[in-house]
């Protein structure tokens, strides 16, 4: 039985909804086409090349003063890795922690936390920008990555630096990568302190990456291993980072 409930207003309303729905599914469908994919990836490449073109290679992210610090520095993502080997390290104050530096290097390194802390340090009060939109200002102290890479001796075929982390996300561990421009940037440090105190577990203890010209998901926490590679294709899902592989985020996170 048909009930005559289709008034003109309802008809117009449902036509509008259908039109809107068509437009929306249209956008979602367009997003899935190879052409759109190519357009998007091309524009990402353009964004990276353009920001690099207009920036000095060593242009610094703004550094703030102690008066500008966020009252609370938000921890995000995994804030307490559950892996038993990580928890064991936490239990004895990271006395057994060793940072491995390997891959395409002449002299692979294995560094304890005191050894890292004995290296030349850099302190910087910088703004952390999450891809979601929020920002927090904190003071980071750590060893400049380029000093570690120099000590290990990068081989000429090295193109990217990969950071292997202890935080577990489903099947794999978190990882991230940067190219050599960001790896050698003066503000790129492996930080062991936040706001003048030992780096809290929430924020990536004992060691986290700071790449100050990129967004939060590049700032790998719980860094266990630094690997120099020639290509990102054979690491994880091949896109250069956990969120790049699993969430389709862009590898270049300068914007």
């Amino acid at each position: 039985m048909i009930t005559p409930t289709m008034t003109r207003r309802r008809l117009v309303g449902s036509l509008g909804l259908a039109g809107g729905g068509l437009l929306l599914t249209g956008c979602d469908r367009v997003a899935a086409t190879p052409a759109f994919r190519g357009f998007v990836e091309g524009s990402e490449r353009l964004t990276m090349d353009f920001t690099r073109l207009v920036s000095a290679r060593d242009a610094l992210a703004r550094e703030f003063t102690a008066a500008d610090l966020s009252p609370v520095f938000r921890g995000n993502g995994v804030t307490n890795p559950t892996a038993t080997d990580y928890q064991a390290m936490v239990a004895n104050g990271f006395a057994d922690y060793r940072l491995r530096v390997d891959g395409l290097v002449r002299r692979p390194l294995s560094m304890s936390l005191p050894q890292l802390q004995a290296m030349p340090r850099r302190s910087q009060i910088t703004r952390h920008d999450c891809v979601e939109g929020w920002s927090a200002i904190g003071q980071w102290t750590g060893v400049p990555l380029r000093l570690l890479l120099n000590q290990a001796g990068l081989l000429p075929q090295a193109r990217y630096i990969v950071f292997h982390c202890a935080d577990d996300y489903g099947p794999g561990k978190y990882y991230e990568s940067v190219d050599l421009i960001d790896a050698h940037h003066p503000q790129t440090i492996l930080a062991w302190a936040l706001n003048g105190r030992a780096l809290p577990v929430t924020n990536g203890a004992p060691l986290r990456l700071r790449v100050e010209r990129q967004l939060g998901y590049k700032q790998a926490k719980y860094v266990m291993r630094v690997e120099a590679v020639n290509s990102l294709a054979h690491i994880g899902g091949g896109k250069g980072g956990y969120w790049e592989d699993s969430g389709d985020y862009a590898w270049y996170a300068g914007i």
Partner: peptide, 24 residues
């Protein structure tokens, strides 16, 4: 709501791809 956003279902990465490529 879903009818006001691209993509219509929650996706920050997807929205950023649309936003930053159309920005050019």
């Amino acid at each position: 709501p879903h009818w006001a956003t691209i993509p219509s279902g929650y996706s920050l990465a997807g929205a950023r791809r649309w936003h930053l490529s159309f920005a050019w």
